[in-house]
Design a protein around this nucleic acid. Structure first.
Lengths: 108, 108
DNA sequence: GGTGTTTATCAACTTTTTTTGATTTGAATA
DNA sequence: TATTCAAATCAAAAAAAGTTGATAAACACC
């Protein structure tokens, strides 16, 4: 057989320590928040318009009210966006206004 | 009622142009690739050990062969990793060695 | 050729995520 | 107080993603 690049097996269990499971889960919850097209569009809209309420997402993305609430909650729980309540309205904004650039950098 | 921060409705469909659906989908495929704990660990391992074959992921993460192949394919299809075939072995490496830092920056 | 190794793929199943429509909650207004 | 409006929540259904064990393909070695 062709010589493998290096000897095999080269690394065994325990050779490379992994991060804490908790740290992995935290990162996964954030990347998961960005992994849905609807939520990416929401983040995009917030990067152009720094403050939007639920009904504006409905209007801009042509989505049902419960669908909008569902996705906003995922972004909120992941810490991607913040909510400010004014009367009956919920206003959302990006916690980090530069986040979209960082997401975009992942796919370059 | 409390005065809303601004008049409503403030923005309507078409007011904020969205990126092409295709561009959104491409970004989503990358963020989705990073949204699973197993795949995050794989990327982490590759950031510490620049080249690993399928069976090494099995050993290091204590996972079945088909599960490892399944997750590696998702990372490969998203363009996160590259594959080099040597005989019967498939060797994987990060397309962008700094990608883990960028992923980590998302959750800061 | 026959055997063993590494890896990918497949189909069936399980789990998770998303969607949908209805209901509930809280607040403003007539 | 009754009504209306914005938004969250719920339960059921649908869709997507992940897991599992088996099979297949490609290669090396005897």
């Amino acid at each position: 057989m062709d010589q493998c690049i290096t000897d095999i097996p080269r690394v065994r269990r325990g050779d490379v320590p992994l991060p804490q499971e908790e740290a992995i889960q935290r990162i996964a919850s954030v990347t998961k928040a960005f992994s849905d097209p609807i939520r990416l569009k929401m983040v995009y809209l917030l990067s152009k318009q720094s403050d939007l309420c639920t009904c504006e997402f409905e209007e801009l993305l042509d989505l049902s009210q419960s669908k909008v609430s569902y996705h906003l909650k995922i972004l909120l729980d992941a810490g991607v966006i913040d909510r400010e309540i004014h009367g009956s309205w919920s206003h959302y904004s990006l916690r980090n206004p530069k986040i979209l650039e960082q997401v975009h950098a992942l796919s370059q």
